[in-house]
Nucleic acid binder design. Structure first.
Lengths: 230, 230
DNA sequence: GTATAATATTATAGTATTAAGACATCTATG
DNA sequence: CATAGATGTCTTAATACTATAATATTATAC
């Protein structure tokens, strides 16, 4: 499963450069240009690894690292530092990053470090459970739990079933009858309008604003579609 | 299986960082901020290894170490000391700790020390108990005993079987039929509501408040799940 | 713009699920 | 054989879910 990496770096050229390299290595990459933005994204998305610059406008990288480590013990953190900085302090108790690289750095090496950290996290951290991922959502079929970013959303059986169908087929436009067959079974007798009602319930739980849905789109005259990446 | 580590350290930031790192390495971690608290927890829970700061308010670390060693000969103890302290005294007969680290220290190294001590304890110490651990619970499959912390909870055969199934598969959402098949066997004739009744009985024994269960969660429309982590 | 069809929203009543308690039967043990 | 504990069944209560229907809103075609 392609892990999700967040880059927190104010200089755009470096950020893009890192992104391109991690993209190519098969990671999903999010970007933040300030510490505040980084913390916000980390709170919303289920980020696995953060590549964090020390020098940031506003809250500096050390502070961001400390906050991240406190909030998300299982997060991997790689810091980008200047040569002169105190490595013990960075890696040690004070801030608790998992690895560091001194600038300027070789992008290939960064990718290697990310990969190595990923392995470490997998070994120590929890086992890999079959989960369906579609950022910012994740469905854990093993425990039957649905997550938006880091927080669980409790779904009813019907809602869960619909969400699973969508996330297994992002971008596909489903006719009401198709949804009906999958969720209610082929022998269901009744109006296909129940699909609408249950879509609405699902929307009200997962959308920011359920009257302006951004995840479950209406395909007029057909049915509904889980919005694939823009 | 994840061993239980107790950290006795008054400074919260250090305590938290040690906890985070041990958590990630797969240990269950308990915290105490004073020597008294540490001794109390050690008496209640089946702690395997203690990480013990020397400088503590009230009873100091040396004294805590001596008491622990006297009471629990098989306990592993790692002391955290300042650079200047007399290492021979710490490691020697006087107090009898198993290992030490000087502050400031690298958390990664601490994890390595804990792991190494764990191995040593397994070789020298007691038999490899075929026990399932899921803090604060422990199941001894041979003697068919069930513990919450240090105290045994007497379970009936049916309850024990359910508890075992859950603790072997933390986080998994079990359908009633799955539980039925495992506990009662595939040839059981009768209603699957029997599962509900026995879950209730188990809850009333192991939960603080069985109407607000925190260990055995209800998965609505499906069955039950042992809560994996908070 | 207006009519029409499709979809969104809301409320409610009915249904299904789970929790809790009580009881009778069964089983092991002395 | 007597007893205590274990276990399955039944009943009732509490809770959560969901289909239906009725109304409002929005999109499309003309």
């Amino acid at each position: 499963m392609g892990r999700l990496v967040l880059i927190v770096e104010d200089e755009e050229s470096i950020r893009k450069f890192v992104k391109i390299n991690l993209d190519r290595a098969g990671y999903s990459v999010l970007e933040a240009s300030t510490g505040e933005e980084g913390l916000q994204i980390a709170a919303q998305e289920s980020v696995d690894i953060v590549v964090l610059d020390v020098m940031l406008p506003g809250i500096d990288g050390f502070e961001v690292c400390r906050i991240l480590r406190e909030k998300y013990p299982y997060l991997g953190i790689i810091m980008l530092t200047a040569k002169s900085q105190d490595i013990d302090k960075i890696m040690g108790l004070e801030y608790g990053s998992d690895d560091y690289m001194t600038k300027p750095f070789n992008p290939t090496e960064l990718v290697l470090r990310v990969k190595s950290l990923e392995r470490r996290l997998e070994i120590n951290g929890e086992d890999e459970k079959p989960s369906l991922d579609f950022h910012p959502f994740r469905i854990d079929v093993y425990s039957r739990q649905f997550y938006k970013g880091k927080s669980e959303i409790i779904l009813t059986p019907t809602e869960f079933s619909i969400a699973k169908l969508f996330i297994e087929n992002p971008g596909k436009a489903f006719k009401r009858d198709e949804i009906l067959n999958y969720v209610w079974g082929v022998d269901f007798v009744g109006d296909s309008k129940i699909v609408d009602v249950n879509i609405r319930r699902l929307r009200s739980k997962i959308e920011e604003d359920s009257s302006q849905p951004t995840y479950i789109e209406t395909v007029w005259g057909v049915g509904y579609r889980w919005k694939s990446r823009e």
